[in-house]
Each structure stands twice: as C-alpha cells, then as structure tokens.
Amino acid sequence: MTATATSRVHTTVLSPIGPLTLVATDGILSGLYMDAQRHAPDEATFGPRDHGPFGDVELQLAEYFAGDRTDFDVPLRLEGTEFQRRVWTALREVPYGRTWSYGQLADHIGSPGASRAVGLANGRNPIAIIVPCHRVVGADGKLTGYGGGLERKQQLLDLERDGSDRLF
C-alpha cells in the first residue's frame, strides 16, 4: 500500500431510527448513513466489514439516543468540497435541541444569500446525526428535505427537544 492509499471499513449498528452504517477511512469516521438514505454512496465503496474502529462511535451514539449526550467528540474525516466542509463544520455549531434555517446557516458561514447552496451541501452531509443536518429547517420553521426522510428528522428533533424549552 502506498503512502497515499486509504483503507476503508464499515459496520452496521442498530439504533432507534433504524440501522446505521458506519464507515471509517484510515480508522477515522468518514460516513454515517441511515437505511435507504438519499445521496449515500455505493456500498461497494465502504470497504470490508470490520467492527474494530467503531467502539467509541457506537458508545457515543448509544448515549445520544438515551438522551445522555448532546455533543459528539469522535474524530471525523469530512470529505467534500471546501464549501461543503464549511457547511458541515458549521452544522456542528447548531445547538442541541435547537434549529437554524438554511438562511441562518448561510449567514453563519459568511455567505448570506447562499441558502440554496447550503441546502445542497446539507443534503450531501456524509456523517448524519453527529454532523447534525437534521437541525436545519425551512425559513418558516417547517421541516424540509432530509436524506434519511422527514419522519427520521422529526424523530431526531423530538429526541433533542425533550427537556428543552423551545425548538427555535
């Protein structure tokens, strides 16, 4: 293997919102996909099954779904364009239990007026839940597209809202 070659492995774990496929590139989480997620890459790119590098990710996801974790601290490998990575990094700043509109997120990254581009980047988020794209809603506060489906988006928002006074 050359110095630039990468090694990918994956595993599937169960969650309250269905099976989640975790993908690691060189031992770092690079994908978290829901069953039948829109824009998920071809499973052939996930590499062989290997449960090894995912212990901490699984623990933190279990704590999140139990309501005991509001923030994740696992290392991430976000692979995308510079603009996509800016959006995905900013998503991690949306507070637990709150939502931002696409316009607010565009303003936050210094690109006012780029709400459509932010929405496209949001839809291509490779690490669902941990990079909380489910916390982004339409300008009117209504749920809009979500790669895992609007029902799952609502489930995640409901999970986070429990114990929180307000959603917006």
Rank of each mutant, 00 (worst) to 15 (best):
16 P>Q: 07
18 G>V: 10
21 T>E: 09
24 A>P: 03
25 T>D: 00
25 T>I: 04
26 D>A: 09
30 S>M: 00
31 G>H: 05
34 M>A: 10
36 A>P: 00
36 A>S: 13
38 R>Y: 14
41 P>T: 02
42 D>K: 09
42 D>R: 12
44 A>G: 12
44 A>N: 10
45 T>Q: 05
45 T>P: 01
48 P>Q: 10
49 R>P: 08
50 D>H: 02
52 G>D: 11
57 V>G: 04
57 V>Y: 00
62 A>C: 06
62 A>N: 14
68 D>F: 08
69 R>F: 09
69 R>Q: 13
69 R>I: 12
70 T>V: 12
71 D>M: 04
71 D>H: 09
71 D>T: 14
74 V>A: 02
78 L>H: 06
81 T>L: 01
82 E>V: 15
86 R>W: 14
92 R>W: 02
93 E>Y: 08
95 P>T: 13
97 G>S: 09
98 R>H: 13
102 Y>M: 08
103 G>R: 15
104 Q>C: 02
108 H>A: 15
117 A>R: 14
118 V>G: 07
119 G>D: 02
120 L>A: 12
122 N>E: 10
124 R>Q: 07
126 P>F: 00
126 P>K: 00
128 A>P: 00
128 A>T: 03
129 I>N: 08
129 I>Q: 04
130 I>T: 10
130 I>G: 01
139 A>H: 06
142 K>E: 08
144 T>V: 12
145 G>C: 02
